[in-house]
Simulated scan of single mutants.
Amino acid sequence: MAMSGLLPFLFPPPPSMFVSAMSVISFVSLGNAGISEVRRKHMQYSKFWNLNSQVSVDKQIKLSSKTGMLVAYTPAFLAGAASFWIFPQEGLRFSLISFALTLHFFKRIFEVLFVHKFSGSMILDSAIPITLSYFLSTAAMIYAQHLTQGLPEPPIDLKYPGIILFLIGISGNFYHHYLLSKLRGKGEKEYKIPKGGLFDLVICPHYLFEIIGFVGISFISQTLYAFSFTLGTIFYLTGRSAATRKWYLSKFEAFPKDVKALIPFLF
């Protein structure tokens, strides 16, 4: 019943076991990661890099946060960039998806190099699944879009609202990452309570805008895989934001209790 309600918004599912399997795997794995964050089983990067580790940190292979993030984002960026050469002249919607994904990861690499100020490390055991997730999801989304060639367009065209949402999402995400980077002076590594923008309402506005950006991408794509991945991303970032709010509450007595995790005034 729910699936039939989505049919006006989706391309017909292509006869591809890979795309079908990836749709389920992406949703389940991201959703499970979100539940794990709530249960304090964190992906070990950023402020959670050495929290509640099952293995002594000294016995694990560590990367600097900067190196770990570059390792995580670069393969996905290259997959997006290569899609223009691998699948040339596949129409406006395909070009928009490839451009959006490539721009998304280019922005992330740019932020790693020129915006973010890092204070911790990344465990290799976290870097590997993050890298694979970004790369495989990008490749799967592009391939799923390629398989829509020759199929009838969805009755309801969402690609232009999707472009608007994507631009709002990527801009808002960058702005709040910039605000986070300005919290620390030169040489400082300690965490502070973020201020400005939507930080006065939620502790993770950068996650909120990332969700908006991926909703935009799924609207541009209108494939089952894109919607499955976006829904899984929402679950993961919801769990991560809830864990982040709990972390700030535990670290800062002055953390304002009315600041929510992800959605202003609600959650």
Score class of each variant (00 low, 15 high):
residue 89 Q to I: 01
residue 40 R to P: 01
residue 96 L to A: 09
residue 201 L to F: 13
residue 230 T to M: 11
residue 112 V to R: 07
residue 189 K to G: 11
residue 255 F to A: 06
residue 21 A to F: 15
residue 136 L to W: 13
residue 267 F to H: 01
residue 31 G to W: 08
residue 125 D to H: 12
residue 160 Y to W: 15
residue 122 M to A: 04
residue 125 D to L: 13
residue 154 P to G: 08
residue 68 G to I: 05
residue 32 N to F: 09
residue 183 L to E: 14
residue 221 S to F: 01
residue 183 L to S: 10
residue 46 S to Q: 13
residue 36 S to E: 13
residue 22 M to F: 10
residue 43 M to H: 07
residue 100 A to L: 02
residue 189 K to I: 14
residue 232 G to L: 10
residue 249 L to K: 14
residue 6 L to M: 15
residue 249 L to A: 09
residue 183 L to N: 06
residue 45 Y to L: 15
residue 18 F to T: 07
residue 125 D to Y: 13
residue 247 W to M: 09
residue 154 P to W: 02
residue 120 G to N: 10
residue 170 I to L: 11
residue 193 I to Y: 08
residue 51 L to T: 14
residue 8 P to G: 05
residue 113 L to E: 08
residue 220 I to S: 00
residue 119 S to F: 13
residue 211 I to W: 02
residue 53 S to Q: 10
residue 219 F to D: 00
residue 258 D to P: 00
residue 200 D to T: 13
residue 126 S to R: 03
residue 20 S to H: 14
residue 154 P to I: 04
residue 262 L to N: 01
residue 38 V to C: 12
residue 26 S to T: 14
residue 105 F to L: 07
residue 255 F to R: 04
residue 263 I to H: 01
residue 156 I to L: 14
residue 223 T to I: 04
residue 104 H to Y: 10
residue 46 S to T: 11
residue 17 M to K: 10
residue 101 L to S: 03
residue 231 L to T: 15
residue 177 H to Q: 14
residue 137 S to E: 12
residue 172 G to Q: 09
residue 10 L to V: 08
residue 51 L to N: 03
residue 228 S to L: 10
residue 264 P to L: 02
residue 81 A to S: 12
residue 255 F to W: 04
residue 141 M to I: 10
residue 232 G to N: 08
residue 216 G to A: 02
residue 256 P to S: 06
residue 239 G to Y: 06
residue 227 F to T: 00
residue 188 E to M: 09
residue 236 Y to T: 03
residue 93 R to E: 08
residue 23 S to I: 12
residue 46 S to M: 12
residue 84 F to R: 11
residue 97 I to T: 02
residue 47 K to P: 01
residue 202 V to G: 03
residue 25 I to K: 07
residue 79 A to W: 01
residue 258 D to S: 11
residue 63 L to A: 00
residue 211 I to F: 03
residue 131 T to A: 13
residue 28 V to C: 13
residue 259 V to N: 04
residue 159 K to Q: 13
residue 151 L to I: 04
residue 31 G to D: 09
residue 80 G to Q: 03
residue 12 P to C: 08
residue 104 H to M: 07
residue 177 H to S: 10
residue 265 F to D: 00
residue 81 A to D: 05
residue 18 F to M: 11
residue 198 L to I: 07
residue 135 F to L: 15
residue 127 A to D: 03
residue 1 M to E: 06
residue 93 R to I: 11
residue 248 Y to K: 03
residue 171 S to V: 12
